[in-house]
Simulated scan of single mutants.
Amino acid sequence: MQSVTTGRGADQVMFDRAELESILRVYGFMVASGEWRDYAIDGLRDRAEFSVFRHSSEMPIYRVVKTPADARRQGAYKVVAATGAILKRGQDLKQVLKVFDRQLLRLAGGH
């Protein structure tokens, strides 16, 4: 897990390159299928969030959240729906992102 320091001296949690590649791989498939349209990345003091939007003026439909403080308990990663429901959480980001596999299969023409 990576934490970076901003110019103001405050720590900020961010996704590292490998984490972003995993998230952007799923994002790319969903954009290509027309399901997702926009995203935002927020580096906060206690967590990093990758928010996904169907339309840029909406609330995020999903958030991929990295919270290093939760790593030993529930796992540092989770996917949160627009309702606030946690769809999946765990230690391994790639495993957590598998929550989107069913939707990706459906979009690819699988059953």
Rank of each mutant, 00 (worst) to 15 (best):
M1I: 03
Q2W: 02
Q2A: 14
Q2N: 12
V4S: 11
T5F: 09
T6V: 02
G9Q: 05
A10E: 11
A10Y: 08
V13P: 07
V13L: 07
M14Q: 10
M14Y: 05
F15K: 08
R17P: 00
R17W: 05
E19P: 06
L20E: 13
L20G: 12
E21D: 15
I23Q: 06
I23N: 04
L24T: 10
L24E: 13
V31M: 12
S33I: 00
E35S: 14
E35C: 09
W36H: 11
Y39R: 11
A40T: 06
A40E: 06
A40M: 03
I41Y: 08
D42A: 09
D46A: 14
D46N: 14
A48T: 05
A48L: 06
E49L: 03
E49N: 02
S51I: 00
V52Q: 07
F53N: 04
F53E: 01
F53H: 07
F53R: 04
R54T: 00
R54N: 01
H55I: 00
E58Y: 05
M59H: 06
P60R: 12
I61L: 06
Y62E: 03
R63S: 13
R63G: 02
R63Q: 13
V64M: 14
K66I: 00
P68A: 12
D70P: 01
A71W: 10
Q74M: 08
G75L: 06
A76L: 04
Y77H: 04
Y77A: 05
Y77M: 05
K78Y: 04
V79N: 12
V80P: 08
V80H: 08
V80N: 09
A81Y: 02
A82E: 09
T83Q: 14
G84H: 05
L87I: 11
K88C: 06
R89I: 01
R89H: 03
R89D: 02
D92M: 10
L93K: 08
K94I: 03
V96W: 10
L97W: 03
L97E: 05
F100Y: 10
F100M: 10
D101A: 15
Q103Y: 09
Q103H: 14
L104A: 14
L105T: 09
R106T: 05
A108K: 10
A108Y: 03
G109E: 04
G110A: 14
H111N: 11
